[in-house]
Design a binder for these strands. Structure first.
Lengths: 334, 334
DNA sequence: GTGAAAGCGCTAACAG
DNA sequence: CTGTTAGCGCTTTCAC
């Protein structure tokens, strides 16, 4: 049987109230009594039960974090940012993954609420649950902040990047290197791809050089699939369009897929082809040549989300706020 | 104020016991009553408090998992394996990171115990805390399993790889390709590097070709640092020892560092130099050429750990067990 | 300073 | 079938 406060009290010949007082240090306790209690606690290896404490104190010592997956370095960086902030606080983090599944997303959040979390950070909230106003309803009673997506709900705070500007920076960079035939690599079904495509179209139209066939969609997939699919598509694209000299890829994984395609096709980077990725995941620095990319500053995304959530909790969920982070170009070797 | 079972009971004009019964479905309730209760629960968006339930039921619905970091794909794969197993169970996973810090490791585990976890999986437990018997003491009262390290304690189950054999397979492969001058790349201060080095020495001595200078230690670092450091060291090594034609690296990050060194030095892989890594992290398949490596099957490491922990919990922590997974060679392009 | 007792949200006898 | 009640481990009045 686990040791409880009653066991400690008995062993010390004091009441449980006294033991509680020395643990919490919120009421005066005679020095000798205190020492005795502390000694017994140590001897018995007593650990106060957080569940019981939270219950009676009507407080919570947990923050819920929901991410699509932890196999993606983008998300783990965000998590690191969140953890870093809450490190010094009273809160611990309860992490859940949804595998990009909307039903799992709901059941994870339910679970968090059952566990009485003080608030929830949702990284990349799913489209469907946003559309159905699911999050809005929840957010009325539990503090919630979105990462990587803006919310119109007045109950939800959010942190995200100015991806429109990021895309503009990327393409401008390619343009400044005198590339005119720039291809655009994206994936399925995501708001952030749509934004970037819009910018791409605009900018290509501005120089009167928009070509529908330069837009490639590699569909959906996890990390390694993305790289391989992008490589395949890249091989098709580049072998049938020899005039392409620049590539803007919506994320670094896609960009790396294109790099691999170039190796297969013996296209020299950056001599024959320039590539700009997006995200600046660690991987972008591991490959050779090192990838030029747009930094999303995932860590800071996480930190800011943590700050916002903390504010919301302290304000009793009364105010919401949005933070938009600007992106910057990381010039490397591609 | 959060709504409780009492609120539901009042709204239904029944006792809390009845509400509890419909929630748990463990005692008969009249159909109409049940429906009414269910309706009100839905209306009020009532969610039972897990903390209170666990408290009274003297059970736990949480498994603790301790990892050094989530920025390393090795660990996230192990976590995925663990999650996959517990997915279908009553348990949720509480994840903690230690940043390779032994004090944090202790405080994380304490926190888990305070949160009344049913058991703890420790991935890559720290040397110091193993040496000081810290884990052994804890494991007497809470079910514990190690991943990636064997424990002599009769209270701790463990899952790990047969790295000795893995190293042998890697080096044999290189030998079978007629490489005689094989270099060995390792990092600081880890049991698993030591094992592999021992095997390397033996096998090189067997062919009368052991050379101390072919052993390179790149020290300690996180993922991107490992790659870069290995590249630097690789450049030194390979430019001063042109006769080296094979490399066995203790992990894939190091192997990729060496690959990058080759690109800088214009050494062709695998024509001029063959490289075998270790782990088979996803990254090894993302680079070009794709890395030949030893698969550690991290996912399965996690799954097996989950099975062992579950067994321990069900057996009241009475038995311990070790599982050793065999490694296999993944032949790719290096 | 310290103890007795109430109660956090919930479940499980027990009684009816 | 359903309500009453005790109590999980803890904190916090309220007395003394």
């Amino acid at each position: 049987m686990k040791i409880t406060i009653v066991d400690v009290a008995k062993a010390c010949n004091v009441s449980v109230a006294t033991v509680s007082r020395v643990i919490n240090g919120n009421y005066p306790v005679k020095k000798e009594t205190k020492e005795k209690v502390l000694k017994i606690i140590e001897e018995l290896q007593y650990k106060p039960n957080t569940q019981a404490r939270d219950l009676i104190k009507k407080q919570s010592s947990t923050i819920g974090v929901v991410v699509p997956s932890i196999s993606n370095m983008f998300f783990t960086n965000v998590i690191n940012g969140i953890e870093n902030y809450f490190e010094k606080s009273q809160y611990s983090i309860f992490l859940c993954t949804t595998e990009h599944n909307k039903d799992k997303e709901i059941s994870r959040i339910n679970e968090l609420i059952c566990r009485n979390v003080a608030g929830i950070i949702v990284v990349d909230p799913g489209r469907d649950n946003v559309k159905s106003k699911y999050f809005e309803k929840i957010a009325e009673s539990v503090p919630m902040v979105f990462v990587n997506r803006h919310s119109e709900s007045s109950y939800i705070s959010s942190v995200f990047n100015d991806q429109e500007n990021g895309a503009r920076i990327a393409i401008n960079y390619l343009l400044s290197k005198n590339h005119k035939n720039i291809a655009f690599i994206r994936g399925d079904n995501s708001y952030s791809y749509d934004i970037k495509e819009k910018v791409y179209k605009e900018m290509m139209n501005d120089i009167n050089n928009f070509k529908e066939e330069f837009i490639v969609n590699m569909g959906h997939g996890n990390s390694i699939q993305t790289v391989n699919k992008s490589m395949e598509e890249g091989i098709k694209l580049l072998s049938s369009n020899k005039n392409i000299t620049g590539i803007f890829a919506c994320n670094d994984l896609m960009a790396i897929g294109i790099m691999n395609a170039c190796k297969k096709l013996n296209i020299k980077i950056p001599t024959d082809l320039s590539i700009v990725g997006y995200d600046n995941i660690e991987l972008s620095e591991m490959v050779e040549p090192k990838l030029t990319t747009i930094d999303q500053n995932m860590f800071s995304l996480g930190e800011n989300a943590a700050v916002l959530l903390n504010e919301k909790i302290e304000n009793n969920n009364e105010y919401s706020k949005s933070i938009v982070l600007s992106n910057r170009l990381i010039k490397r070797e591609t």
